[in-house]
């Protein structure tokens, strides 16, 4: 990895941490607060691509492990990994990777058209919603022993919020792509 990639990965991790310092929105009786931080995960994939996006998310998770309060609401440290929603944190890795891979494949190097925006949105939904929720649900089944249907229904309430976030991520990624393109092209 060259120095510039290392710096981009680190700066993006700093952005993800900073997004978590904006106040989270909690929806009623459900244990996962809606934060701008998971938006950061979608942004990492759509803006930096699969490899660097995944690395920047991994860096944030390592910062959690070493005890820095980098998650939304000032959470951090190994105790976070004892929570039943840990799958939604570990899931950031495959989520950023899938979002990044699809963005490189279908949205990089395209003209600033509607197709690019749509593809970025699909990439953000595939990684940041489908893959992330799959990890989160499996986590709740393993850690909390919830049956699949219950874990699923408990999480569904967050899908609308995350779809909105995927939309914001796609628009922001397109704007960044126009102003400072970084996404590698994968054919």
């Amino acid at each position: 990895m060259n120095t510039r990639d290392l710096v981009l990965v680190s700066l993006f991790a700093a952005i993800i941490v900073a997004l978590g310092l904006l106040p989270p929105i909690t929806l009623g009786f459900i244990p996962v607060p809606i934060t701008a931080q998971s938006l950061g995960v979608m942004l990492a994939g759509t803006i930096l691509g699969a490899r660097r996006g995944t690395l920047s998310v991994a860096l944030v998770i390592l910062l959690v492990i070493i005890g820095l309060p980098v998650l939304s609401g000032g959470r951090g440290g190994l105790a976070v990994f004892a929570g039943p929603t840990v799958g939604f944190l570990i899931g950031w890795l495959p989520a950023a990777f899938v979002t990044g891979y699809l963005s490189e494949r279908f949205a990089a190097g395209r003209a600033n058209g509607f197709a690019q925006l749509a593809n970025l949105f699909i990439a953000a939904v595939a990684g940041g919603v489908v893959v992330l929720y799959a990890c989160g649900i499996v986590g709740m089944m393993l850690v909390a022993g919830l049956p699949f249907m219950k874990a699923l229904s408990g999480s569904l309430a967050f899908v609308p919020g995350d779809l909105i976030k995927a939309g914001v991520a796609a628009l922001a990624a397109r704007a960044v792509q126009a102003g400072y393109p970084l996404l590698p092209v994968r054919s």
Binding site: V9, S10, L11, A14, V17, L21, I66, V70
Partner: peptide, 10 residues
């Protein structure tokens, strides 16, 4: 180095 950069730039 990466850890330092993140903490530095947040």
């Amino acid at each position: 180095l990466a850890f330092g950069l993140v903490v530095r730039f947040v």
